[in-house]
Every structure is written in structure tokens, then in C-alpha cells.
Amino acid sequence: MIASVIHGFLPVFVVIACGYALRTSGIAPDFVWAGVNRLNYRVLLPALLFSTLAGVDLLSPSAGRLVLLALAGIALVAFTAFAWSAVLGLSRRNRAAMLATTTVWNFVLVLSLSQNLFGAEAVEIAIIILVPGAILGTLISRVAVAPNANLKALSGAARDPIVVACLLGLAASLTPLSDFTLVMRPLEIIASASIGLVLLTIGAGLDFAALRGRYVPLVSAALIRAVVSPIIFLGLGLVARLGTLELEVLVLAAAAPTAAFIYALVAESEGEHGLTAGMITASVLVSALSAPAFILIARSLA
């Protein structure tokens, strides 16, 4: 059992390490990643979300329960991060970085890991869990990092490519659009680039220098992200009596590292991007250990 979990995680974390090696070796220096990140965030990732959602039946009875669990869990994680920030006395900018790091799910990474670890059936469950999570997490982080939290920030969040793609994909899932191969196939082609690219960009974005100093917020964010969050979702899943596969996917989504695009989000909003880079790095490192462990725990408790 442990071997199969490690086998599922290994290629994903090796590709992440390759991304780091490509940047630091100069084969793909810093300027390369600006375009790659932009393309990924504005085109590939939305294409992946839209084309995946368009073909999924989101009206099944079990889907509603998973959606509610995902929303409740993210709200609880956001509340935990907010409350802990207050206990630490973090500034508004630092608190925003922590909220973004802890609440935004890494859609692509979780899809990839779900496929590797549990097979095709898990991917459909992951999508049902991830979509509301992606929308709520993106909205929370967008509002948190906005210089002035107001309606303008919310309208900006509503135009976010991830949010728009999710909403359009949800709408398309109610239509027969996914049957039109000539429309869907180009989207599926570009979407297929997203998973590998996201993993590489996570690696390229790792910044070990950013781990120096400000240890308390860094460690707090990483632990909330990779330990507290899966505990919350594990508890919710057990209370809701989820099946083994559903519980494993839910815990995987909660324990996986944060999405790398929040760095760009925080940087664009002139937030604490240095601290965010450190938090992302720390969450990747802690998740690499905690995610396999939580999968094993979920499997034994379900």
C-alpha cells in the first residue's frame, strides 16, 4: 500500500524538482517562466477546467454532498488561517498571503495525483470536489490580497480566468457541448499541457532563500496548509461517512501543496510576494511528506 502511494507521488514531485533544476541551472531562466505562467493561468488552466467540467455530470446526488463538504472545509480552513493570523498579530498584507496560501487548492496537481494514485474514477470525484473549492478559494484569496477589500475586488475576482472557466464549464455541463468534438478537441489538446506545465512552474517558483527569516508565519502557513487542512477535511469526511475513494481524494485535495498562481496574484496586487514565495515553498516541502501520510491514514480510517 505504501509503495503504491509513493509510486503515485514520485513522478509528480520529480517533475516539480525538474522545474526547480531548469530554473536554477539557467536552462530555463527567470524570464522563461513569466510567459509560461501567464499562458498557464490565462489559457491552459481555464481550458483544462472548462473541458473537464463540460463532460462531467455534476447533478448526481452524491455530487451535492461533496460540494458542500468542499465549501465547508475551505471556509473552516480560511477561518483557522484568519484566526491564527490574528493570534500572531500579522499585518493585513501578511495575513492575506497566509489566507491565499492555505485556501487555494492546486487543481491540476490534485487531478494528476488522483489519476496516478487512484485511477480514472477518482478524477471525476476530484473534479466535483475541486471546482467549488477552486472558486471559493480563489474568491477568498482575491479579496484578501486586494489593496482595499471592497466590491471592486470582488468584481475582479469574478473576472478571474479560473473562476470564469469554472462557471462556463458548469454551464456547459448542462448542455450537449462536450459531444462536439471539433470544439472540444482543441481545448483538450491545450488542456493536456497544463498538468506537466503546472508541476514545472511549481518547481521553478520554489524559492529557498525566501524561507529565511519570518519563520513563524512561514511554518504556520505550511502547517495549516499541509497538516491542519487535511485534518479538517478528514474529520468532515468521516462525519459525512464518505466512501474510501471519496475520502482519499478529499484529503488529497486538502493536503496537496498550494497553487503556484497565487504568487502572481499576490505580486499583481502588490502584496507580500516574497513571503508568499516562501509559504508556497514551505507548503510544497511539508506536503511532500504529509500528503502521502494522510492518504494512508484516510485509507485506514474509511
Binding site: C18, L44, S112, I189, A191, S192, G196, L199, L200
Partner: peptide, 8 residues
């Protein structure tokens, strides 16, 4: 995994 991103 990495090569899948190449052609698109």
C-alpha cells in the same frame, strides 16, 4: 508527464 506539455 513533462513531455505531454510539449506539443500543445
Amino acid at each position: 508527464l513533462a513531455g505531454r506539455a510539449a506539443l500543445p
